[in-house]
Amino acid sequence: MCLGIPGKVVEVNRSESWAVVESFGVRKKVDIALIDEDLVPGDYLMVHAGYAIGKIDLEDAQISLELWEEILHAE
């Protein structure tokens, strides 16, 4: 039940507090009441028991991968 599933936002409805996200090819409506940040299609959310709990920062994911490349190429 602690399973978090990342999903790509395809539709946002702020006034009704939901977004449709796509994960592994499956689309699902999730509650976005816990997300304060702006959301637009193409953003990624971490979804937990039907509720988005955080917005995924793709820039950080990219930096993380680049750091690995640096570590792997060092020495």
Partner: peptide, 16 residues
Amino acid sequence: YPRLVREEGNNKAKEI
């Protein structure tokens, strides 16, 4: 896990 975790976390979730 900085692509998701912030220093203060999700304030809205904590408030609720």
